[in-house]
């Protein structure tokens, strides 16, 4: 080949382009698989948007977003979504208060302190925790957590936000711990050694080098956990009650956006009525909120990302 003229070389390669039909079939099959999830998401968005649009022909956006009374199924009807948003936020705030610090602490313990033996036990247990069906958590809240809370605060209602918050926090805890663990592990050993060599204690190395260096991953895991908590349905439906209420008292019964959707979906509300369309409006709002959270998580990841060799 080395002494062949350019024309010779060209003639050897030209004419070899054939139609590889197998390749083509595979390419199309793979493309269809990839497009499936995108198409599904898009069609959900379209359905939500159109149904919500019909709802907003009857009820103004302002009344929906700013109204403080949510009684779409009772007369006099009122379509202010704030009590549901408030219920959801109450659950999320409670769950975040527990799950975020405990999750991060778990990851720090597993990654920086735990001997391999402990790690090899705790890690699988966490994964099992993540695999428990959410309805079990709901039941657990109702039959175990609520009586416990009532034994401490006797005035607690049977259905209450605190109980649901606690089980939702248990539910998202493995996710926080596992994602934080991953991002802590991505911090190179050489950084830790550099810090130790300056006479730092384990605690200082962790809090002042390792966690800051993995901040993007930690924050992203927090945001993902929050958006999971916002969307959580089963446990809050079972444990938190069905009383849309503007309250910050976790011992009272409330209703979240998701629980409301369940209530209407399972109830005898006639399809096509304004009452029925409320669930699309609520779902659209829910979708917007979680979408925004994911965008924030993405931004945070990009903004604070440290690239290690």
């Amino acid at each position: 080949m080395t002494n062949g003229s350019p024309e010779n070389t060209a003639s050897l390669l030209v004419g070899k382009v054939r139609f590889h039909w197998k390749e083509e079939v595979i390419r199309i099959a793979l493309f269809l698989c990839a497009i499936l999830s995108v198409a599904t998401t898009l069609s959900i968005v379209v359905v939500l948007a159109t149904e919500a649009f019909t709802f907003f022909e009857n009820v103004s956006l302002g009344e929906f977003l700013l109204g403080g009374r949510w009684t779409p199924l009772l007369v006099p009807r009122s379509f202010g979504v704030l009590p549901l948003v408030c219920g959801t936020l109450l659950i999320v705030a409670g769950a975040a208060l527990i799950a975020l610090p405990v999750g991060l602490a778990t990851a720090v313990y597993l990654g920086e302190y735990a001997p391999d033996r402990v790690r090899s036990i705790v890690k699988p247990v966490l994964e099992v925790l993540a695999g428990i069906p959410t309805v079990v958590y709901g039941y657990f809240a109702l039959t175990f957590v609520t009586p416990l809370i009532r034994s401490i605060f006797p005035s607690t209602q049977i259905f209450n936000a605190a109980s649901a918050s606690i089980v939702v926090s248990i539910m998202v805890l493995p996710m926080v711990a596992s994602l934080c663990d991953d991002s802590l592990r991505a911090v190179p050993l050489s950084l830790r050694q550099g810090a130790y060599a300056l006479g730092a204690t384990s605690f200082e190395v962790t809090t002042r080098v390792v966690v800051p260096a993995s901040l993007s991953g930690v924050v992203a895991s927090f945001v993902l956990a929050l958006s999971r908590a916002i969307g959580e349905t089963m446990a809050v439906t079972l444990a938190a009650g069905a009383t849309p209420r503007m309250t910050i008292n976790p011992l009272e019964s409330i209703q979240t956006m998701t629980a409301y959707i369940v209530q209407v979906s399972l109830g005898d509300t006639p399809a096509g009525s304004v009452e029925y369309q409320t669930i699309f409006a609520v779902a659209a709002l829910l979708f917007t909120i979680t979408l925004m959270m994911n965008v924030i998580a993405h931004r945070v990841l990009r903004r604070f990302r440290e690239v290690y060799e």
């Binding site: 950084l191 050694q193 550099g194 810090a195 060599a197 300056l198 006479g199 730092a200 260096a213």
Partner: peptide, 29 residues
């Protein structure tokens, strides 16, 4: 011991912080 006997490693391993914070880190902790 490590406060008295410092160490420099094979590959440079500065903290992902500013130049100033890197040097100030040891004294500050």
């Amino acid at each position: 011991v490590r406060r008295k006997i410092g160490m420099v490693f094979q590959k440079p391993n500065p903290f992902p912080k500013s130049i100033f914070s890197n040097v100030a880190w040891g004294p500050s902790i």
